[in-house]
Structure formats: structure tokens, C-alpha cells
Write a protein that binds this DNA or RNA. Structure first.
Length: 772
DNA sequence: CAGTGAGCGAGCTTCCGCTTGACTT
């Protein structure tokens, strides 16, 4: 039995550290927090000075029992949880729950996982810092009070099972505010003039170049006048400016930047990035993936330098330490980097390989030299107008870090390809080729993606690396927002072309408003958001977290007592809660749209128990109103009378097939064709229930029948061997059974299936068991 | 699997941050 027991937060970390410490030390993990506020009620005794009521959650009981046993056998217990608020609290909870002696239990911290850092930490143990622990308790209690007092208000005033909290409610607000900016946006247009020019330079070479006019023309008339001026004009190279520039690499990844780049470069969702990164971490290939620090250990800096020098030469190496500047950063870990820089690739799944390579490139690039560029701007003057054209080009003189990494950006306004410009001389005459003026529309601010929302939250200091992915998932599972695509709409643009002394007019078209995998606020999210802002503006303020963080810092430094801080928050807060409960009406987002011209009945929209609906007619003892669901892409706030009325056009009958009627409608699972009592889903983005023809509907039915045939591998009466999403399985009596490894599903006999059902094939799931 | 849309009332829902699996039809 080892004399020393070291407790860390993560099992993967425990494994690494054990190697450094030798056999007198046994290193185990607490798997994060081991104790929390009770689950089923407030868990804070408000009357007793906000005393927290803690318990060990069910799924941590075994961890605690194991730790208690090990601690009892050890001579000295060392607690090496992270050096931040949460880590300090974990240490304190461990001492309390394991019944350790606070005097003799040694609290240690290390900033990097190296033998030196760990040895140094062991040489300078301290005791638990109660101020820091109290800052964590204040954070925990405040979040519980806000969440568990606000949510019930929503259950009464909006809908059951909704939730509100310091973090999630502000995340939803960001999306709702942005959506309203988009709703209120009106596109403006202006004409952008570009032209191609040719000439002969002093070396006698023919050169061609494209240039753009920095001045935009707001009307077609102005653009036309300008093109006419161009026609009368002579063009001369007025000026050539060559400017040297540098570009520097981005810092190595934090959780937030990793999520952003993995989304942009690899198309990973935030959750997917974290789960792939977790695998790499557990396999020892990368450092910890939940971090807000851009710091690299001195060991990392040294090995990166070696790798860069051998691979690319000393000129490409430049050792840098990046300062973390995100708000509220706690920096308990290093930046995310490869454990061993000399491994450019790792074995594993495709996604693991891709994410690893991205991490490797980013970390290595961060230790590489700046790129040196040369930017050239040529201005072309006109004899008939004071306006000029400019051509810009950029050449990379030394690639530096660009050799292996270029950061991506969210905006799709992306700068134009910067080409290399041909050699021209000042005063050189240019002959215009074609000059065009194209109408360009301004675009509304972009909707958030999962990754850009994380970026924004981090900027505001809201949420932590361990919670970004869960936040995104919570606001979606509550129905506040949803990740969707939009096909966009065709829009035409006017183009004027000056060619051979004549201006001609044509129309071009572009797709505007196309969206792919963006976060859209839903009606319920907007209703909840508006209600919360009206009643709890302080908590919904974008700066609320930053302000309470300041107070938590004061608690951590001993300037403020935690219960005083909580008490001064809770008093006014609780009063507002009670007032809203007493005075506020139920929120349904109801809007009157007008009257139906056909029936003269009033048309309105509102949030019903089952989602947003349009209602035709008032409810009265002798009139039952008609209802129709809004479509996914419609909002209570913006739907028009015509759009609402057309929702009553479904379901509609479109013809007959095999002597049965076909009707189309939109159901719980989207648009469908119903035929002979069976439902066939319409293809997303292909078929529209309002316009689909009988011919196409018959195709849909036949396609589905074909698919069903492939689904059935074998059938023995009530026992079926089927192909499912997770591979072949056996279905019997509404229950599914796993097929043991090594058997060929196509060759299973009835007897073999029977045997699997009876013994080995433990039921994997049954349809009736779906949770409510 | 492709409905429902009123109202009653019991009993339930809910927060944020720290960590991994279990399990998927």
C-alpha cells in the first residue's frame, strides 16, 4: 500500500501523474465534483443565512466510497484538484466528505504536467483557501437561486418544464436580439464598378489588370452616367504604393477557439468537437481540452522549437508566449496542444485524425515566424472624372507560419482573392476593356452558428469551457432555438456593362438569405425572452455575469463576505419574482392578423399547448374555431394574414393511386402523403406539400416501398431480421435484440434467432419504453 | 408515428460547472 494518496480531477491526468511520482504515491481521480446542492428542491436555506444543503449525487456514491477507503489506508492525502475556484471547492468538499483532517491534508497545485512541475508542487503544499471556496459557493448558490426561482415563474406564466438561468437566458437573448435585427433590416443596394484594363509597360510588355472603383453609386442613373464618363475618359496610372506588411499566427487553441475552427474547417458541431477531443485526450495524444488558457509549458515551447527547426529550418521558428485575454479566464490548464509535437499524425478514427492535425498545426504555427508580405496598390486616374480606380495585390515574401496554418473567419464577405499584380509604371496609359456596374445588396447581420455563439459568450465572459457544449444543447432541448437550414430566395440584380462605347443593361440573379446549420430562435424562446427582459432586466443584461464575477473576485480576495453578497442580490430579486407571479398575465405571444375575406372570421396566431398555431374564428358555445400549425420557418411575430390563411389549405387531396385517395399534409414529422392508411414522408427540400403533383406523390410511395424491402433481411413469421441505423438486429414482439458478433445476419435461421431472443440477446430497447 | 387546440387539478419540471461513461433501432 502506497503511503501517499494523491487525488486529481481527471482519471487520464491521474494516470500520467502516477508515472512521475514513483511507487510511494498512488494517484486517483475524483471525476470532478463529488458533492452538490440537493437536486429536488432549492437546496439553500434562505432563512438560515443562505446555508447550502449538500449531498453526494447518486452517480458519485461509488467514487466517494472508493476514495474514502483509499484515504483511510494512506498516511498522507494530497489533493491536486485544479487551481481555480471550482478546483478549490472540490478540494474542500473532498476533505469534508472523506472526513480528512484539514490540518494535515496537503493541497497542491501544478500548472503543467511535467516531472519538474509536479515535484515542485509536492515540495510546497498549502491548505485549502476558504475565501476561494466561498467564492465558488456564492457562484453555485446564486446560480441555483436564479435558476430555481425563475423557472417556476415561467411554468406559471408561459409553459411547464421551461427553464431560465444566468447563462442560458442570455444565450437565448443574443439569438433573439440578432433575429430582430434581421427582421428589421431592409436591404439597401448600390452599384459597384469594376473594370479590366490593358497597356504596355516601359519594358514593352503587354499587361492586363482588374481594378475596382472605391466609390459606390446609389442609383442606376448615377452608375450609368459614370460609365458614360468612363467611355469619354483616358486612363492613366497615377500612383503605385508598395507597402510591406506582416502577419502573425493565432495563439494555440482554447476550448472556444477549437470549437470555432473545427466548425469552420471540419464542419464539426460543438458537441462533436468535444467528444472527439475527449478521445484524443484519453489516449494521451493531446493535453486537456477544457481550457481557457493560451499558455504553453516551457517543455512544450522547447519541443515545438526543435520540431520546427528540424522540419522547416531555424528561420521558421519563433518562440512566443501568448497572453490570455478572454474575460473571466481562470487558466488552470495549458492551451490545447499535442502531447508530443514530433507526432504529426496519430492513429484513430478519421475525425480523430483530422482534429488532431488541426490542433498540431495550430500549436506549431503559434511558435513559428511571422509571414512577411508586400501589398501593392495601384490607382488609375480618369481624365473625365475625379473618381479613380484601384487595383490591389499582395505577394507573400516569406510564408512563415502560413506554411502550415491559416485561420478561418465567420464572415462570408471574405476579401477578394489578392492576386499578384503585373509590373506597371507611373504615368502609363491604360486602355479600358469591359467596365461593369453591378447592383450589390447590403446583407443583414449574420445569424449565429453554434461556434459563433460560443465565441460571443466567451467574449461576454458567460459560461466556461466545460459548459459551452451543454449550453448549446440545453437551449435547443428546451425548444428555445433550433439549428436549421433555409433555402434562401432568388433576387435579381441590375448590371450595366460598358463595352465598345456602348452601355447595355441586363439582369443577373443571386440567392439571398440562404442559411446552413444556423441557430434560429423559436417562438417559445422569443416569448420567454421578452417576458424575462420585461421583468428581470438585470439578470438578462449582457453584463450581469461580468458584474457578479467582480463580486466573486472580491469574495475570493477576502474583501467581501459571501453571504452578504448573496443577501443583497436575493432581497430585491425575490421581490420581483413575487410581483411578477402576482401581477403578470399568461404569455402566449398572441397577435390578431385581420379577417378572413372568405368567411369574415377573425384570424389570429398564438402559442398553444402544442406549439404555434393560427386560429380562424372565435371560440364560443356555437362556434368551434379551426386551427392549423405554423410551419417551422414561420414566426408568430412575422407571419402575415395571407401566409396564415394558406396554412388551412392542408391537408388536401391530390388524386388517386391503386384505387385509394392520396392526401398531402404536414404532420408531426413534416410533410407527408397519406395513401391507403399509410404515411410516406416527402423529401425535404425537394417536395412541397402545396404544389406536389399526383405523379410525384406516386414516385414517393414507390421509393418508400422499395426501401422497406431492403430493410427486411429475413422474416420468420413474427420474428424479423432487419437492417437498422446501427446495423442488423432482430425484432420480435415490439422488442429489438442485438445480434451477437461474428454471426452473419443473412444466414441466421429461425431457431438461431429464437435462441438469441431467449437467452443471449438481452433486450436492447422496447418501443413502449420511450420516456415521456 | 402523421393528434391535439377548453378547463380542472395532482404531481412534475428547473440552475451552472467539474468530470466520465452508457447506450443508441
Amino acid at each position: 500500500m502506497a503511503e501517499n494518496l494523491v487525488i486529481v480531477e481527471s482519471p487520464a491526468k491521474a494516470k500520467t501523474i502516477e508515472k512521475f511520482l514513483g511507487k510511494d504515491f498512488s494517484v486517483v481521480s475524483s471525476f470532478g465534483h463529488i458533492r452538490d446542492l440537493v437536486k429536488n428542491n432549492l437546496g439553500v436555506e434562505v432563512e438560515k443565512g443562505f446555508a447550502p444543503v449538500y449531498e453526494v449525487p447518486e452517480d458519485k456514491k461509488k467514487v466517494v466510497a472508493d476514495l474514502r477507503k483509499l484515504a483511510g489506508q494512506a498516511k498522507t492525502v494530497w489533493i491536486a484538484s485544479d487551481e481555480d475556484r471550482e478546483g478549490e471547492a472540490i478540494a474542500w468538499h473532498l476533505i469534508a466528505v472523506l472526513g480528512l483532517d484539514p490540518e494535515t491534508t496537503r493541497r497542491i497545485v501544478f500548472h503543467e504536467i511535467t516531472k519538474e512541475a509536479i515535484t515542485r508542487a509536492v515540495e510546497s503544499p498549502r491548505q485549502v483557501d476558504m475565501n476561494l471556496v466561498n467564492a465558488q459557493q456564492a457562484r453555485r448558490i446564486l446560480d441555483r437561486l436564479v435558476g430555481f426561482e425563475l423557472s417556476p415563474v415561467l411554468w406559471k406564466k408561459v409553459q411547464p418544464s421551461l427553464s431560465a438561468g444566468r447563462v442560458q437566458s442570455v444565450a437565448v437573448r443574443l439569438l433573439v436580439d440578432r433575429e430582430r435585427e434581421i427582421i428589421n433590416f431592409t436591404a439597401d443596394s448600390a452599384f459597384r464598378v469594376t473594370g479590366s484594363f490593358s497597356g504596355k509597360n516601359s519594358e514593352g510588355t503587354d499587361v492586363q489588370l482588374k481594378a475596382e472603383c472605391p466609390k459606390k453609386f446609389s442609383t442606376e442613373e448615377e452608375a450609368r452616367l459614370f460609365l458614360e464618363k468612363c467611355d469619354e475618359s483616358e486612363f492613366t496610372v497615377d500612383n503605385i504604393v508598395v507597402k510591406p506588411g506582416t502577419r502573425s499566427p493565432a495563439p494555440p487553441f482554447t476550448t472556444s477557439t477549437l470549437q470555432q475552427e473545427a466548425y469552420r474547417k471540419l464542419g464539426f458541431s460543438v458537441a462533436q468537437t468535444m467528444s472527439v477531443a475527449q478521445k484524443l485526450y484519453e489516449a494521451g495524444k493531446i493535453t486537456y481540452m477544457r481550457t481557457d488558457s493560451t499558455n504553453l509549458s516551457s517543455l512544450a515551447l522547447n519541443t515545438a522549437r526543435e520540431v520546427i527547426t528540424t522540419e522547416y529550418g531555424a528561420g521558421y521558428s519563433r518562440t512566443r508566449q501568448f497572453k490570455t485575454h478572454s474575460r473571466g479566464a481562470q487558466e488552470a490548464h495549458e492551451a490545447i496542444r499535442p502531447t508530443y509535437f514530433d507526432r504529426k499524425e496519430v492513429p484513430g478514427s478519421n475525425n480523430e485524425k483530422k482534429l488532431y492535425e488541426l490542433i498540431w498545426r495550430r500549436a506549431i504555427a503559434s511558435q513559428m515566424a511571422d509571414a512577411r508580405t508586400e501589398k501593392t496598390t495601384i490607382s488609375i486616374g480618369m481624365s473625365a472624372s475625379p473618381v479613380s480606380f484601384t487595383a490591389t495585390g499582395e505577394v507573400i515574401l516569406f510564408d512563415g507560419f502560413l506554411k502550415i496554418y491559416t485561420e478561418s473567419y465567420d464572415s462570408n464577405t471574405g476579401e477578394d482573392e489578392k492576386a499578384i499584380l503585373p509590373r506597371v509604371d507611373r504615368g502609363m496609359k491604360l486602355t479600358p476593356g469591359t467596365i461593369t456596374a453591378l447592383q450589390r445588396f447590403t446583407t443583414p447581420p449574420p445569424r449565429y452558428t453554434e461556434a459563433s455563439l460560443v465565441k460571443k459568450l466567451e467574449e461576454l465572459g458567460i459560461g466556461r469551457p466545460s459548459t459551452y457544449a451543454p449550453i448549446i444543447s440545453t437551449i435547443q432541448s428546451r425548444g428555445y432555438v433550433s439549428r436549421e437550414d433555409r433555402p434562401g430566395e432568388k433576387r435579381s440584380m441590375i448590371q450595366l456593362t460598358l463595352s465598345k462605347g456602348k452601355v447595355s443593361r441586363s439582369e443577373k440573379s443571386e440567392i439571398a438569405g440562404k442559411e446552413k446549420s444556423k441557430l434560429f430562435p423559436k417562438d417559445i424562446g422569443m416569448i420567454v425572452n421578452d417576458f424575462l427582459i420585461a421583468n428581470f432586466p438585470d439578470i438578462l443584461d449582457y453584463n450581469f455575469t461580468a458584474e457578479v464575477e467582480k463580486e466573486f473576485d472580491e469574495i475570493a480576495s477576502g474583501e467581501t463576505k459571501w453571504d452578504k453578497m448573496i443577501s443583497s442580490f436575493y432581497g430585491p430579486f425575490r421581490k420581483t419574482v413575487d410581483e411578477s407571479l402576482a401581477t403578470r398575465a399568461r404569455q402566449t405571444g398572441a397577435r390578431q392578423l385581420g379577417t378572413d375575406p372568405a368567411s369574415g372570421q377573425p384570424v389570429s396566431v398564438k402559442m398553444s399547448r402544442f406549439g404555434p398555431v393560427v386560429q380562424l374564428g372565435e371560440a364560443s358555445p356555437d362556434n368551434k374555431p379551426r386551427f392549423a400549425n405554423l410551419r417551422r420557418d414561420q414566426l408568430l411575430e412575422t407571419i402575415t394574414l395571407d401566409e396564415a390563411l394558406s396554412l388551412f389549405d392542408l391537408p388536401r387531396t391530390i388524386g388517386t393511386f391503386e384505387n385509394d385517395e392520396m392526401t398531402v399534409g404536414v404532420g408531426k414529422y413534416g410533410p407527408y402523403v397519406r395513401h391507403a392508411g399509410k404515411f410516406y414522408s416527402l423529401r425535404k427540400g425537394v417536395d412541397d406539400p402545396y404544389t406536389i403533383t399526383a405523379e410525384r406523390a406516386i414516385e414517393v410511395i414507390k421509393e418508400k416501398r422499395e426501401g422497406e424491402k431492403q430493410k427486411v433481411i429475413n422474416e420468420f413469421g413474427d420474428i424479423k431480421v432487419l437492417n437498422g441505423r446501427y446495423g442488423p438486429y432482430i425484432s420480435h414482439d415490439n422488442t429489438n435484440y442485438r445480434i451477437p458478433k461474428g454471426s452473419d445476419p443473412g444466414k441466421l435461421t429461425r431457431e438461431e434467432c429464437q435462441a438469441i431472443i431467449e437467452k443471449g440477446g438481452r433486450p436492447k430497447s422496447s418501443r413502449g419504453r420511450k420516456k415521456k
